[in-house]
Amino acid sequence: MSQSGATVSQDCINAYNDLKLAKKHKYVIFKLSDDNREIVVEEASDNKDWETFREKLVNATHKSKTGAVGKGPRYAVYDFEYSLASGEGSRNKITFIAWSPDDAGIMAKMVYASSKDALKRALTGIATEIQANDQDDIEYDTVLKTVSKGLA
């Protein structure tokens, strides 16, 4: 269980398995439900364009208890594909991204950071994990470098 006590909905695990086993999705974005009690699937998509995915994270919002809407953190799983620089074909790595923009509200950041463990434990077979806090961190090149360990 995570340190905040938040739980993971079964949908998250199903969507993740669709991505991992059935290859139905390219990425899945997860969020906390409005009452912060449960992690749910926000979107699962087979759109291969990294920029669209990135925009989605950058524009994510979170509604605070008082109703104010600000930037929001998210979790995401992306089936990252790259070809090796040595020409030995391509590799797929399932990448977990904990997106928590520095300019999000402190409450939102805290809930997401303290609940991350619950989701990560529920999803088995993640190859790489990225903790991203500003837009540079989720540029395609930055992620590629981390995921491929410099081999792409």
Binding site: P101, A104, K109, A113, S114, K116, Q131
Partner: peptide
Amino acid sequence: AAFAAGKAS
């Protein structure tokens, strides 16, 4: 302190 900064690690 780490959580308050939005980081689990």
